[in-house]
Each structure stands twice: as structure tokens, then as C-alpha cells.
Write a protein that binds this DNA or RNA. Structure first.
Length: 640
RNA sequence: GCUGAAGUAGCUCAGCUGGUAGAGCAGCGGUUUCGUAAACCGCAGGUCGUCGGUUCAAAUCCGACCUUCAGCUCCA
């Protein structure tokens, strides 16, 4: 029998080891530093414990904190540690599942009648630190299915027993550390001592196995790091996100407010409305230049339309209904079905296509109350919608120009786009040949531009494949905003759309649904957080403020403000009887891009002392020069 | 919709175990005329989310509802 195995490393090197060597031993053979940092080991396509014996040739990678899979086992192990702490403080707790997540870990708990309080979290956290000190190793054992069931029957944990139901007949792996043993496929880090910094973040309800039909358990979210510094940085980022919260900034900067009287629908204040209008203006300019025609369709339409489109069957509960003259109307939850009425207004020729109809439409969706959240989830949505009707052979061209359009938009905001391609789902409708062709077109468009994308198999809409565009904001958070959806069914077939082809036959067009901002509400929420309220100057509700030093400089200040105003700069004159320091402080907090301080010196030589937001005093400038500068920055939609 | 938490002046918040409300900022009136992040004095401002209950007495205790927040579920 062969007693040596070949291990190949990520750098391509291969070395021989004794059969049955562990990941830890391999790491140690490379360096003691690596062993200290090693958390788990990638073996071929799997992630294993460092202690597990390797019996065959394999390609391996020692996983550290820097590796995503390293973090995963670290956080997963932290969740076991938390479970141990919970069990020791609250004996009798039943355990659901306790996985790692993108940032940290959680464990779902059934604690009977006990409701966890923030104090409990502190106690659990302290207990965890206590256990960390014992540096207990995570030990993997395997039991037969019957023994596993017996174990949890004795422990009386119905959730684990339910999980075991699905593993019938298999060898079941368990992990034990300290006094806690859990059903778990692993892997885990070598020992609890590796967990240096822990923070339990929150407790919330969560349905067992994610189904609202099941019992609600209590979920503790937590995060852990190899050093206190990492934890501090993470907590700082959470604070930073709170500081940028658009609900807070929207109020402070007087952009919009919400009132109980209209849950889920913002009242746009004058300053917020300026931003809304600037976005609309920018959008319309772009679309006008790109062959779009703007339309506007009724908000209140008879339910018959939604029956025909299929929405009535699926989304009836989410529509606002109005009874009038014994007829049921609905506030439109989407624009698309109505755009077909404009398509069908005339007989369309193949020469007319593509027809690009854009619509800034106000939609209403009765989102369940628990889903509402600031501008991110509203019941009244203003969508930058468009429906492009084209021939199947035009899909590629259209998708190409849409991708360009989206990229151009996001570049203006300094947002990085990322693409997801979603393909045919199992319950797809429509001609498979069209599906193939459309998926091919979408792929071709992305590949042709050398864009990286995630393939989301079977994640398309029932009516066609789509490209979703995500952006990453200044805090590295990802948002799904734009979407490009090809549609063979919902509009073309349900509304029996046709065009006359070259040969005189009647053909069915393809519809492409697309949105760039997604919705004005959500987009403004996102960019508020992205820019932390300090918007690029073209969007900024106030672009410059004139601050006279004393009353004596009012006439000159007025002259400066007038000059800016006639150059179409949104300018305010702060004529309050306050010290300059006071005014500067206040306009800094309001994030005004420019402050123009005018006093004796400026008055005497037609200049302004320029102060830029966060950058401070830029020194004096001749008024005309400053106007040229700011006008240029506005028209170029400059980001600084 | 579900679980938990919260709702006091325009805003941010204090108000212990029941004795009918308080601060800072903002606002208004004065004084001050000032050079790059908060001058000073004064005034005014609240059915304590709504409705009901317990009590001699409720911001405070109880119930229902509304709204918000965290998470779950949902998101055409």
C-alpha cells in the first residue's frame, strides 16, 4: 500500500507527505507563522478542519483569516462558542441553526418563555470570553444516524431532530468543544482560543427554517475578529453607516419627511425636490439623445388590465384598490401593461422598431407594513421606467446600448456597476428558441464589452432572461438598482402585440423592460448615504452661500448673489445677524459645496473669499473667475 | 403579516418605584457689527402617538389600535 501522498499547493508546487497527514502538520512544515494563522484547509473543492487526516493525493490551500472560507469557519466556530455560552447561562435552551453569514454569525434559539434582553447579550458575551480562555479544541466525531437521533432525543432538542430527518441513513458528524456538542458538518477552526474579539450585535425574531408558518425563534447576531483592532474598525463602519443614514440626513438636510398620515410615502421638501428635478432633467436629456420617446399613462385603471397582464392573480393583495361606480380600479403597481396601449395605438411596421418608450411613472404597491423602511422601501414609487419594443434580431443592439447607458449614468455618481445575468427558470413561458437567442444576446453583450458578470442560473423572470446591475457604494455596500429584462410573454403575448414584417406577415415583437435608477426614492436614498449628504454640486440643493461679514457688506453680498443667480447657480444669501464663524459652522453642517465670504477686502476688488465644503479656505478669487469655475463644475457634473 | 423594541416642544433627548412636564439646539424680540466650525440677554413653544381602562390622581400601570426601528417573511 502506498504510504506517501502528493500534495499540490496554490503556487503550483507539489510535495510528498506521509499518508494521513493533517492540514495543521502541513502548515507547520511550511512555517510556524502559517500554523499560527491557519484556520482551516481547502482540500480539493472542500473545506476541512486542520486536524483532519488527508489520505489521498490532493491540491490544498491553507486558509487564513484573509480567505473567505477562513472567515466562514471562524465565524461558524464563534457561533458554536456562543451556543455554549447560552447553554451554560440558560440551560434547556433548544438550538436551531447557527451558521456564519457575510458579516459574522447568528444562532437561532428557542428559549421557551424567556425573552432575551440587551443585558443578556452582555452576559453571554462575557461568558464567551471566559470560554475562550480555556482554548478548547473543536473535535470532530462521527456517529451513526441512530446514535445521533438518540443523542438529541436525550437532549430533547426537536429542531436538531428535524434536521436529522433529512439526513437519514448517513454518517452524522458532530463537533464538540468544551461542554458543547452540536450537529454540524463543519469545518471549524482548531480551538476557541483563536477567537480574540467578540461583539454580540442584536437579537431579533426569525422563523424556524425561514418559513412564516413555523415557530418564531430568537436569533442572536454577532461578529468576531482575530484582533480588537479589526472589531473596532468594523464597529466604526457600523457607526459610519448610521451617520450616513438617509432617514437622518434627509431630515437634517430638509430633503424629505415621512408622516404617519401617509405611511411609506415621502413628502418631498423643496430642497429634496431640487434633487429630484435635477435627476429627472439629467435622465430626460440622456434619453432624448438616445432615441427615447416619453409617455405618461394613467395611474388609476380598471382591474381588467391587471387580469390580462397576470398581475391580478399574483399580486392582487399588493395593489391598492378603488371602488367607483360599481367598478374596481387599481392604482398601477407597474407601468408596463399600459405601455402596450401606446404600442397598439397604431399598426406598427418592422421599420418603426425599435420603439423606445420611457415613462417616469408613479406607482403604488401595498408593501406589507414590516417591509417599509425609509426611502429604501416605499409604497409610492416613482420609477424611471422604459419599455423598448423591438424585433428579436435587435435585442443585442438594444442591450448593448442599454449597458452603455447604465454605465454612463453610474459613472456620473462614482458608483461601480457589477452585472448579474439571470437565465431561464424552470417555470419559464415562451418559445425556447427565443429564450436561447435572448440569453445568447445578453451574454454576447456582456462579453463583447469584456464585462465580468455573475451567472445566476434559472433566476430569470418567467417571461424572459435579465441582466441586473448592482452598484457598490462608498462604504462598499452593494445595492441592486438597474435591471434590463427581455420579455417575450408578458407584454408581447398577453397583449397580442404585432408588427408587420418585411414580407407582410404579422410578427410578435420583443419587449425590453429597463430601469436605471430603479426608483427615484430609493436612488436618492442610496446616493444620500453614498455621498454622506455632501452631494456633487450639480445635485446639491444649495450650491453656494454668500456670507457677508457685517451689515455694511450687504449691498456687495447682494451683488455677488445676483451675479451667481444670473449664472444659474443656486445661491443663498445668509443675511442673518450672526458672526461669520457661526454661519460657516452651520453651512458646513448643511454641507453647502461653496461658501463665499465677503467683507471689506472683497468688496474693494470685486472678489470673494472661497471656502469649499470639508476642504476649507481656498483663498480669494475674482468673482467672475469663481462664477466660471462653479458653472463649469455644475455643467460637467463634477464629482469633487 | 410575524417577533422584539420605541413614540415627550420643529429637532435631539431627560423625566426613578403614579402626585397633571424639563434641557440644549432651532424659532421670535433685543443687544452685539464680528474674517473661516457655536457672541450675550430675554420670550414663546407640549391634550406626553390615538382611543379606552385601573386609580382620589396616569407621560408613568393595563388593553387595543396607529406609526417608526431591528430582524424574519415578502419585493411583479
Amino acid at each position: 500500500m502506498e504510504s506517501k501522498i502528493k500534495i499540490s499547493f496554490p503556487d503550483g508546487n507539489t510535495r510528498e507527505f506521509d499518508k494521513g497527514i493533517s492540514g495543521a502538520e502541513i502548515a507547520k512544515s511550511i512555517s510556524s507563522g502559517l500554523l499560527r494563522e491557519a484556520l482551516a484547509i481547502g482540500v480539493n473543492a472542500e473545506v476541512w478542519d486542520l486536524s483532519r487526516k488527508i489520505e489521498t493525493d490532493a491540491s490544498i490551500k491553507i486558509l487564513k483569516w484573509q480567505d473567505a472560507d477562513g472567515k466562514k469557519s471562524y465565524w461558524h466556530s464563534s457561533s458554536h462558542l456562543m451556543a455554549e455560552a447560552v447553554e451554560s447561562l440558560f440551560p434547556g435552551t433548544k438550538f436551531g441553526i447557527g451558521p456564519s453569514i457575510d458579516h459574522g454569525f447568528y444562532y437561532d434559539l428557542d428559549m421557551g418563555s424567556h425573552t432575551l434582553t440587551p443585558d443578556d447579550l452582555v452576559k453571554i458575551e462575557q461568558k464567551m470570553f471566559e470560554f475562550v480562555k480555556r482554548d478548547a479544541p473543536f473535535i470532530r466525531t462521527e456517529k451513526s444516524w441512530e446514535d445521533a437521533v438518540a443523542y438529541f432525543k436525550q437532549k430533547d432538542d426537536p429542531y436538531k431532530l428535524e434536521l436529522l430527518d433529512e439526513l437519514k441513513g448517513q454518517q452524522i458528524s458532530f463537533y464538540t468543544h468544551g461542554n458543547f456538542t452540536d450537529l454540524c458538518s463543519g469545518p471549524h477552526i482548531p480551538s476557541t482560543g483563536r477567537i480574540k474579539a467578540i461583539k454580540l450585535l442584536s437579537v431579533a425574531g426569525a422563523y424556524w427554517r425561514g418559513s412564516e408558518k413555523n415557530k418564531m425563534l430568537q436569533r442572536i447576531y454577532g461578529i468576531s475578529f482575530p484582533s480588537q483592532k479589526d472589531l473596532d474598525e468594523y464597529l466604526f463602519r457600523i457607526e459610519e453607516a448610521k451617520r450616513r443614514d438617509h432617514r437622518k440626513l434627509g431630515k437634517e438636510l430638509e430633503l424629505f419627511v415621512f408622516h404617519d398620515i401617509a405611511p411609506g410615502a415621502p413628502f418631498w421638501l423643496p430642497k429634496g425636490m431640487i434633487m429630484f428635478r435635477e435627476l429627472e432633467k439629467f435622465l430626460r436629456e440622456e434619453l432624448d439623445q438616445n432615441g427615447y420617446q416619453e409617455i405618461s399613462t394613467p395611474i388609476l385603471v380598471k382591474k381588467d388590465l391587471w387580469e390580462q397582464s397576470g398581475h391580478w392573480a399574483h399580486y392582487r393583495d399588493n395593489m391598492f384598490l378603488v371602488e367607483c361606480d360599481e367598478t374596481t380600479y387599481a392604482l398601477k403597481p407597474m407601468n408596463c401593461p399600459e405601455s402596450t396601449y401606446i404600442y397598439r395605438n397604431k399598426i406598427r411596421s418592422y421599420k418603426d422598431l425599435p420603439l423606445r418608450y420611457s415613462e417616469i411613472g408613479r406607482l403604488h404597491r401595498n408593501e406589507i407594513s414590516g417591509a417599509l423602511g425609509g426611502m429604501f422601501r416605499v409604497r409610492q414609487i416613482t420609477m424611471d421606467d422604459a419599455h423598448i419594443y423591438c424585433r428579436p434580431d435587435q435585442i443585442l443592439d438594444e442591450v448593448n446600448s442599454l449597458i452603455d447607458l447604465v454605465a454612463r449614468f453610474y459613472a456620473i455618481f462614482g458608483l461601480k456597476p457589477m452585472y448579474n445575468l439571470s437565465t431561464r427558470p424552470d417555470e419559464a413561458m415562451g418559445d425556447p428558441k427565443l429564450w436561447d437567442r435572448a440569453e445568447e444576446s445578453l451574454k454576447q453583450a456582456l462579453d463583447g464589452k469584456s464585462l465580468k458578470y455573475n451567472l445566476k442560473q434559472k433566476d430569470g423572470a418567467f417571461y424572459g432572461p435579465k441582466i441586473d446591475v448592482q452598484i457598490e457604494d462608498a462604504l462598499g455596500r452593494e445595492w441592486q438598482i438597474a435591471t434590463i429584462q427581455v420579455d417575450f410573454v408578458m407584454l408581447p403575448e398577453r397583449f397580442e402585440l404585432e408588427y408587420i414584417a418585411e414580407d407582410g406577415s404579422r410578427q410578435r415583437p420583443v419587449a425590453i423592460h429597463r430601469a436605471i435608477f430603479g426608483s427615484f426614492e430609493r436612488f436618492i436614498g442610496i446616493i444620500t448615504e453614498h455621498f454622506a449628504g455632501a452631494f456633487p454640486i450639480w445635485l446639491s440643493p444649495v450650491q453656494a452661500v454668500v456670507l457677508p461679514i457685517t451689515d455694511a457688506h450687504m449691498p456687495y453680498a447682494n451683488k455677488v448673489a445676483d451675479a451667481l443667480r444670473s449664472a444659474n447657480v443656486r445661491v443663498e444669501l445668509d443675511d442673518r445677524n450672526e458672526k461669520v464663524n457661526y454661519k460657516i459652522r452651520e453651512w458646513e453642517t448643511k454641507k453647502a459645496p461653496y461658501m463665499l465670504i465677503v467683507g471689506e477686502k472683497e468688496k474693494s476688488n470685486n472678489s470673494v473669499a472661497v471656502r469649499q465644503h470639508t476642504k476649507g479656505d481656498l483663498g480669494p478669487m475674482i468673482l467672475e473667475d469663481f462664477i466660471r469655475k462653479i458653472a463649469k463644475e455644475i455643467s460637467e457634473k463634477s464629482l469633487t
